[in-house]
Amino acid sequence: MRAFTYERLDGDSAARRRADTTDSAYVAGGTDLLQLMQEGIAAPRALLDVSRVGTDGVTAELDGIRIGAGTRLTDAIEDPTVAARLPLVAEALAASASPQVRNMATIGGNLLQRTRCLYFRDVTTPCNKREPGSGCPAQAGENRLNAILGGSAHCIATHASDLAVALVALDAEVIVERRNGERSIRLADFYRLPGDTPHRETHLEPGDLITAVFVPIAATGLSSRYLKLRDRASFEWSLVSAAVALKIDDGEVTAARVAAGGVGTVPWRLPMVEDRLLGRTIDVATLQLAAEAAAEGVDPRPGNAFKVPLLVNAVARALAAVADQELAR
């Protein structure tokens, strides 16, 4: 590990501007960043600890629910507002990592965790995300965990966050404190597809600090299911996950929000699935037809082709579970 300085920041935003260089990094729970530093993948000269800058806590506002970026995952799961009005978020968080990690990790940090692509994590191999222009061995290598959606010839690394999948489904916004004030970015626009610059993962600018995520009121209080499929029962990233929230009135779908994890280079919204649900009357055939749209545009590799049927089936199963909840309502 390279030598670095450590500074704990307080609520004074001026102090945060010291992060305005590429050689410094914010840290809160550190559950991913410290791994990256130990492995030599990240080597910031300065760590700025933002865990005490006062961005934790959940607030129900008139137009939606705000989850502070510094909120620990465990605290968000246990928050009564999140549990009651954002069950999809609570379920996605509860399926994340392990209790120990959830006690440390924060909402903001979770959105910025780096990929688990084996070649990204091993500094002795090429990786365009880690070393632009060095190549992407995952294309023809061990790509079982890699993306089937949103990839490019330069990168097929999956985005690892479950939270981001749930939030994308719910049209969440990321609140960012920037040098000249605060701004809000739709999470759907927050991440960049890898294209030929896979090392640029978000639209954050140097010095930007995520202070909160905001879920608009229209996306709250929906029946939902976060179905996560993985190689073991806990403490593991998803092979495929399906985030589904529906509203069904008199048998007709009036709201449909569907996204998938473990399959995309970014958290992957599935508008085609939603289109096949909205305004339709719910029955088994409709759900199945809708779920099949999840595979639209997939570009699998030999090692991860199994994710295609898995994705369709996971979406179908989650849709059916939520439809049952709604119909029983």
């Binding site: 791994q35 688990r116 084996l118 994590r121 965990l145 190689d231 073991r232 029962a233 403490f235 593991e236």
Partner: peptide, 9 residues
Amino acid sequence: AEYLVPVCA
């Protein structure tokens, strides 16, 4: 993280 062994669950 990537070489999996069973966990309690």
